[in-house]
Design a protein around this nucleic acid. Sequence first.
DNA 1: GATGAATGAGACTTCATTCAT
DNA 2: AATGAATGAAGTCTCATTCAT
Lengths: 192, 192, 192, 192
Amino acid sequence: MVTNERPLRSDARRNRAKLLDVAERVFAEKGTSASTEEVARRAGVGIGTVFRHFPTKGDLLEAVFVARLRRLADEADRLAESADPGEAFFTFFAQMVRSAPEKNALSEALAAAGVDVTETASPIKDAFRTSVSTLLERAQRAGAVRADIGFAEVITLLVSASHGAEHSFTAPDVQSRALAVVLDGLRPRTGG
Amino acid sequence: MVTNERPLRSDARRNRAKLLDVAERVFAEKGTSASTEEVARRAGVGIGTVFRHFPTKGDLLEAVFVARLRRLADEADRLAESADPGEAFFTFFAQMVRSAPEKNALSEALAAAGVDVTETASPIKDAFRTSVSTLLERAQRAGAVRADIGFAEVITLLVSASHGAEHSFTAPDVQSRALAVVLDGLRPRTGG
Amino acid sequence: MVTNERPLRSDARRNRAKLLDVAERVFAEKGTSASTEEVARRAGVGIGTVFRHFPTKGDLLEAVFVARLRRLADEADRLAESADPGEAFFTFFAQMVRSAPEKNALSEALAAAGVDVTETASPIKDAFRTSVSTLLERAQRAGAVRADIGFAEVITLLVSASHGAEHSFTAPDVQSRALAVVLDGLRPRTGG
Amino acid sequence: MVTNERPLRSDARRNRAKLLDVAERVFAEKGTSASTEEVARRAGVGIGTVFRHFPTKGDLLEAVFVARLRRLADEADRLAESADPGEAFFTFFAQMVRSAPEKNALSEALAAAGVDVTETASPIKDAFRTSVSTLLERAQRAGAVRADIGFAEVITLLVSASHGAEHSFTAPDVQSRALAVVLDGLRPRTGG
DNA sequence: GATGAATGAGACTTCATTCAT
DNA sequence: AATGAATGAAGTCTCATTCAT
């Protein structure tokens, strides 16, 4: 089935992309309570244009989150093709957490992914879930990750760790060691 | 050092306590964007009274956080007296995380504790740091907690895990397993 | 039963009255689509003050209508005490229609009265209904008004005629003659 | 006198007619505050097309009114040929009022007719005036309608009664009796 | 001529904060 | 000290109108 939405005019498509891009940056800097006006201003468009593309501030936020999820799923897919499943999984986890500080509210995006699977069936959320699950299962089969956790636990930990990492005042080495703790916890208990 | 603030009139003292109590509940229920007006209403005082005690909404939020910290430090002190240092530490950690959901934004309070040490030297923050550090060091000396982390890492993990736990839509058993991962990560590596 | 709303502070009462007064004039001049901002400006208060007294524009409009109804009911009561029931009724009807031009949307207030009796049971609407009904019944008993109509028909005609009269471009004598037609129609058919 | 406007391209003519048709329905349903955008959407054209045909929302509204007037004038003309002048007049009056509910704001169209004679000399308005006047005069000559009123009074009453009838919450039988009152008022006084 | 994206003034509403009572 | 009315900046959203495609 083909969607019946005709493709946007080129200028509109450009504006939409620009808005999404700017919005991501603005929300990263000031949190999700940043005003729609500021997004419009920094994108160089009128406030009405924002509204046309995203009828509600919530819609704009959701679009930003979805865009992020899409990129994260892509990254997971890329890593899934690597030779070492364990390394692939831990790399993905660590990368996400390390990139969190520069994108405030990434954790919300992730949380949204974990949640709405039950409510709004969104293709992107499904794709993200599939990509991460694949990464996880391969690592578990390879014995690199403990077997008693699933997608939900991984997301919860990812959300948590990302959130912790968003607080820029924590020193980088503290972040590293805290992350190491979580990663160690994800490994199977040796000599258990 | 003695503060030069004269003691509050008895009704004022009562109002202040009541406000703090109500504010904690309100912010827990609706997040920190709940209105000052609602706090006043539910405390049964005029809005002017809130601002007399806490000249700024930020001041009110901080006071709530400090009150929480004080209670947490007390709890840490109580546990520090128990016989098993390892169990004391893990109990403290788990208790805090499990109680997070019912106090929205607790993580912010904790984050604030980690932070402001550099800015505002607050006696309560210092006390909290001392209490938790004691708990940690005893557990480490007893070999129950890995030795390569300190107060900062623990707080970061606590903030993270609490935040993850605040999202009520995650199932309790998922929360438990995610918490278990972090706790396991905190233990020394066996057979290393 | 006493309402549990404590009386307004004197300055608030003054402002409320002023706002109602100004709002009535503004809506009369520009129709009900006049902005709340303009009401605030002409009342010499901040926009927030309007909101405090009338949380919604709809609330403000309703308050204006209710105030009008109250005055109309009072006028009906005053006339009900006059010696000639027929004259009382026709005077009331004519007065209302003649005063309509200077209060745009009076008809809406009246329509509201006719309507909401079924929905929102408002004391003022009930009072208005009672007052006008009394006036009507006395005139009918005196043989001055045809017997086959009731309150509902009178209100409908009043609303209609008032609306017609609101269009200021119609010459006064045309208005008079049109009103005369309606009044004649209300009289019992002679020699029927 | 010939207008120097070149004839519209066939698709443009079709669009114009469609727009007028849709606009009448939309304004009837939602009142004149319905958005121009909705008219465009339901007509299946771009918003730009609406503004090309009617440079202003006011222009669109006026065009709708004019179209209505034209149809009303036609109806008046048709009735003017019937045998009974009195019945023709009353039928016309009653028909208009009865059809008012389904065309919200018809009264405004009529009011516009009464008015703009002085401002914009529109052929259609003149035609309407002539048609209704003819209907009225014939009925008066036949003794079916009182002689002391003219076109202006009839329009005023028509506008009034139509407005009253537009309020859908009034029961149909109430409407009927109210209309009967006006019609009776239009008849010559018997036994005067 | 048709299209629909962009515009931006302006409407309503919220809320932290001030200040007269 | 307490009160709560007043304030007004700021936020979200709407919509008539313009203009590049």
